[in-house]
Amino acid sequence: MSDPILTVSGLGKRFGGFVALADIELQVERGERLGLIGPNGSGKSTLVNCLCGTLRNETGKVAFDGRVLDGLPAYKRIRMGLARSFQLPRPFASLTLAENLRVPILYATGGQGRGVDVERRCGDLLQMVSLAEKAQKLPGDLTQIEMRKLELARAMASDPRLLIADEAMAGLSPGEVDDILALLIRLNEQGVTIIMIEHIMRAVLAFSQRLVVLVAGRKIADGDPQDVVRQPDVVEAYLGS
């Protein structure tokens, strides 16, 4: 445990007088599957936004793969291999599924079109999320779960080393949850480090090797999932007393 892919230290963020995050310390190891949970408004999405450069953190620093990210815009972070999927899928509505994946392939991966067979890469990614036969459709034609899969495929198209899946399963049926879960585990087996942010406890526990709990902008627990969910303060904060 000496060469983490992501190191967050002393990270803090406020909106006006409201403290969204305070003193967050977090390390993620290479190849790890980390679960991040917390009640609504506990700062999970703010943390994702600070990690990915959508928001600027006021204090503390974020280091990815040994490099300090502070001040780097979002597009540079994804080029380094830090990808995220959005909580509510945000597809490019006027582009076909294949073209949706083409954007990160062209912009975020080192190949930038030359040497990389863009068509084939799009095809492979769509195959991976079993959307290959809809390659020429527009996102508007997709169902809820297909939209989630497209969102994940687009995050994967940038060839990330760390993927942050922000509530990729919210609102899906149990069968669909298993679908996405299997997909994420497969990606992890291919060497991608994954942070899963999720409300569905069954999925989080099945997935995570380690569990981190945020409450009111602070980290209150970090450790083995089975131990963490038995911690009294976690039970109180998360499940209600």
Partner: peptide
């Protein structure tokens, strides 16, 4: 072109474009 796909991504969703590596 690459530029064209970047433009289209900006038109559709600027935040998602940035998160896809597009220097918006």
């Amino acid at each position: 072109s690459r530029l064209g796909y970047g433009f289209a991504a900006i038109r559709d969703d600027e935040l998602a474009a940035e998160a896809s590596g597009v220097p918006t």
